[in-house]
Write a protein that binds this DNA or RNA. Structure first.
Lengths: 208, 208
DNA sequence: TAGTTAAGTGTACAGGTGTTCGCTGAATTG
DNA sequence: CAATTCAGCGAACACCTGTACACTTAACTA
């Protein structure tokens, strides 16, 4: 056999990642998360941490990347649901909120580091969010024949509203969460309908 | 005279607040800001800090409150400008972006602590943002005769979009900032027009 | 099987942290 | 003028941090 060593290494690597995610709660952000704490939680000596990551920032970026994977799975899931069920807005919102509820710590990480202290982090998170914007932009161009900049502005608005509602819903009791979710759907309708209306106006203008 | 002592105390209190604001940069968040650092910057002994604040959290909440004052001045300014110049969206956005540019550190504080580690902080920031939402809601009810919940959903959407663009614009070069600002205005138009359209629909529905 | 590689360990160090305590000296009071 | 208040100080405390270094020991290689 020539695998058990690499396998064990991967195992403790995952233990470190899991330990970090466990410690990322509402009260404990990544920036006040110490290498020693993570090592303790992962069940290894502090110095062993360096066998896997150069420093905490490298671990953090790994976490953001992992969350990106999860997010993209989420998008695929939403797309499949939409193909079957219809209603784009309702399905997308429900799917997204489901994700936030199931992975609060991952979402919290993205949320915080979006405006956090490290430029590398901010960029990494922005990249993930841009995936959403870009994909949605393409969809809007394809589906509604919007011009590029029009579609992008709309997509950005939609993503912003969804993402922020996710943030706000994190610490809310279930009933308030539902209210928020209903309000979000309303807001998405507003902006989508407004975009349609303004697009038609412009097209009429072009014909004259 | 019976004032010079209290006066001096207020002076160092302000020095502490200013020191904290100075240290709140893009690279240095409130949570990795130490009592000793602040004291050093303010030119006092670490222990003297306690003569003014029980701990760092109390200082932080004071900062949030102060930023609230600044924000409310901002709102008044915007209102006056609107009375004179008209265009609600353009004026509001310009005024807000002006504020963000002039007080990046205060805005960064609000931005980060909105999803930060301390519940007291999060509540304080939410309170400030709610001022905006509520005031805007009243305006929309008064101006457009929207029903309460309709107005609130719209107001929340508008505030969310504006606030987020402020956040995104912080580290952008001037040209990108302008593009962002234009896009924001477009998004606000979308959502405002959509809200009008849907409101008229509902009113027709009521008359039948 | 003998030699090499490398994940994980334990010790140690220098430096930062929040906070307690007893003190000073000037402003304030009566 | 004498007594009191109190903002600011310096030393000391216990604690936690990241990281360098030399080591063990099990897995891999040739």
């Amino acid at each position: 056999m020539a695998e058990t060593r690499a396998l064990q290494k991967e195992k403790t690597r995952q233990a470190i990642i899991e330990a970090a995610l466990t410690q990322l709660t509402a009260e404990h952000g990544f920036s006040n998360l110490s290498l020693r704490e993570v090592a303790r939680e992962a069940g290894i000596a502090p110095t062993s941490f360096y066998r896997h990551f150069a420093d905490m920032e490298e671990l953090g970026l790994t976490l953001v990347d992992e969350s990106g994977v999860t997010l993209r799975q989420l998008m695929r899931k939403a797309r499949k649901r939409i193909e079957k069920k219809g209603s784009v807005i309702n399905t997308s919102v429900d799917t997204f909120m489901e994700f936030v509820q199931k992975n609060p710590n991952i979402f919290r990480l993205l949320l915080r580091e979006r405006s956090g202290t490290s430029a590398a982090f901010r960029d990494a998170v922005a990249r993930e969010i841009n995936h959403f914007k870009d994909e949605l932009t393409d969809y809007l161009i394809f589906e509604n024949n919007y011009p590029q900049d029009h579609a992008y502005a709309l997509a950005e608005g939609l993503v912003t509203l969804v993402f922020n509602s996710g943030a706000d819903s994190l610490d809310l009791p279930k009933q308030k969460q539902n209210e928020l979710q209903q309000r979000l759907k309303k807001q998405l309708q507003f902006i989508a309908i407004g975009a349609t209306a303004l697009n038609e106006n412009n097209m009429q203008g072009d014909k004259r």
